[in-house]
Amino acid sequence: MVHHQIKVVQALASAITEGGRGANGTAFPNQPEKALKLYEFEGSPFCRRVREVMTLLNLDYEVYPCPKGGTKYRKIVKELGGKAQFPFFVDENTGEKLYESQDIIQYLFKNYGKSGKTPKKYTHYPKLPLVAFAGTLINGARGVWINKKIINRSAPEQLVQLWGFEASPYTRVVRGVLTELEIPFVFHNVAKERWQDQGPSILRLKPGKYEALKGGKREKIVSVMGRVKKDIQVPYFEDPNTGAKIFESEAIINYLQRKYGA
């Protein structure tokens, strides 16, 4: 079994291949009333493109994992859209249902971006996502296939909750396990809002006590995460089915494997 820290290093290398996209986002997102829904799997480079933009726009959304061999949500996607193709995006605020990653990205900027326009760097992706695919391989292709031990097992009654951002390697390894266990979850984006947020919690570019941007999303999230030092550390996980509240990726993964993967 690959050691946890090696997995984290692989996830970090995977993030670097994408040029750091999926780390920064607006402090003042246009979060819709009804939850956005994304049917996807962690190891898909096309799904990754969408997740990066969701982080840039700092949007929270529901994730329904559809790993290869999955039995729960792949069939729902086929029922809703007519084919098992991923990502599949549903916005119940408008009734929109979309498949192609580029179409989803343009839709997100149009409806939830500040200007309504897609920035030039996001208008045209390579038809073959070679860089993102390389990132998937570097990450050990985690979050691609179902864990065969849990096939046909019922999902938790309530959606579990995960706080993080796309490029966070510690968050990535947790999302990979959630995908492989086919556990649906709410992903709360906690994007870096300004230069003072850059770096891990103990090694930020701005030394001293951490102060979230006044009125920004991070300021509101701090109290939810319950950190004594009023800091931001990801990933953070909550399971409303059991009352579990956990920091540290390794501890979260151990909990998921013990509770839902055994």
Results as ranks from 00 to 15, higher is better:
residue 176 G to P: 05
residue 105 I to G: 07
residue 5 Q to C: 04
residue 185 F to H: 10
residue 152 N to P: 02
residue 62 E to S: 06
residue 249 S to L: 03
residue 255 Y to N: 10
residue 82 G to I: 09
residue 135 G to D: 11
residue 94 T to C: 06
residue 81 G to L: 07
residue 76 I to N: 06
residue 123 T to E: 15
residue 87 P to W: 08
residue 25 G to L: 03
residue 74 R to W: 01
residue 240 P to M: 08
residue 184 P to T: 14
residue 96 E to M: 13
residue 261 G to N: 08
residue 6 I to F: 03
residue 173 V to M: 02
residue 180 E to Q: 14
residue 122 Y to E: 10
residue 83 K to L: 11
residue 237 F to N: 10
residue 23 A to G: 02
residue 237 F to H: 06
residue 210 Y to P: 04
residue 69 G to Q: 07
residue 9 V to I: 15
residue 187 F to N: 09
residue 79 E to C: 00
residue 81 G to M: 09
residue 93 N to L: 10
residue 136 T to L: 01
residue 206 K to R: 11
residue 235 P to Q: 09
residue 149 K to E: 15
residue 157 E to H: 11
residue 144 V to I: 08
residue 251 A to P: 02
residue 138 I to K: 05
residue 138 I to T: 12
residue 40 E to A: 13
residue 52 E to Q: 15
residue 177 V to F: 00
residue 232 I to M: 05
residue 41 F to R: 02
residue 61 Y to N: 03
residue 129 P to V: 07
residue 45 P to W: 00
residue 180 E to A: 09
residue 227 R to L: 13
residue 10 Q to G: 05
residue 14 S to N: 13
residue 48 R to Q: 12
residue 47 C to R: 02
residue 200 P to V: 08
residue 55 T to A: 06
residue 215 G to E: 00
residue 177 V to W: 01
residue 226 G to S: 05
residue 173 V to T: 09
residue 55 T to W: 03
residue 247 F to T: 14
residue 203 L to V: 11
residue 164 G to C: 04
residue 101 S to E: 14
residue 189 N to V: 12
residue 134 A to R: 06
residue 45 P to A: 04
residue 188 H to S: 10
residue 41 F to W: 03
residue 118 T to P: 01
residue 219 E to A: 07
residue 8 V to S: 08
residue 28 F to H: 08
residue 154 S to P: 13
residue 125 Y to S: 09
residue 21 R to S: 13
residue 254 N to P: 07
residue 55 T to P: 02
residue 198 Q to G: 00
residue 152 N to A: 09
residue 158 Q to E: 15
residue 152 N to W: 05
residue 15 A to S: 15
residue 206 K to T: 13
residue 212 A to Y: 03
residue 6 I to E: 12
residue 113 G to V: 09
residue 160 V to T: 11
residue 203 L to M: 14
residue 206 K to M: 07
residue 159 L to V: 06
residue 217 K to Y: 00
residue 95 G to R: 02
residue 167 A to G: 04
residue 225 M to V: 07
residue 193 E to Q: 01
residue 38 L to R: 01
residue 229 K to A: 15
residue 151 I to M: 12
residue 3 H to C: 04
residue 125 Y to Q: 13
residue 200 P to H: 04
residue 58 N to H: 00
residue 99 Y to T: 13
residue 139 N to L: 03
residue 210 Y to D: 10
residue 257 Q to I: 14
residue 134 A to I: 13
residue 96 E to R: 11
residue 117 K to S: 14
residue 145 W to N: 15
residue 46 F to V: 09
residue 130 L to S: 14
residue 45 P to G: 04
residue 126 P to I: 10
residue 144 V to T: 13
residue 55 T to H: 02
residue 122 Y to H: 12
residue 122 Y to R: 12
residue 173 V to Q: 01
residue 34 K to N: 12
residue 4 H to E: 14
residue 28 F to P: 00
residue 224 V to S: 11
residue 122 Y to F: 06
residue 206 K to Y: 05
residue 198 Q to F: 05
residue 220 K to A: 15
residue 92 E to R: 09
residue 183 I to D: 10
residue 50 V to K: 00
residue 248 E to R: 01
residue 78 K to R: 14
residue 193 E to S: 04
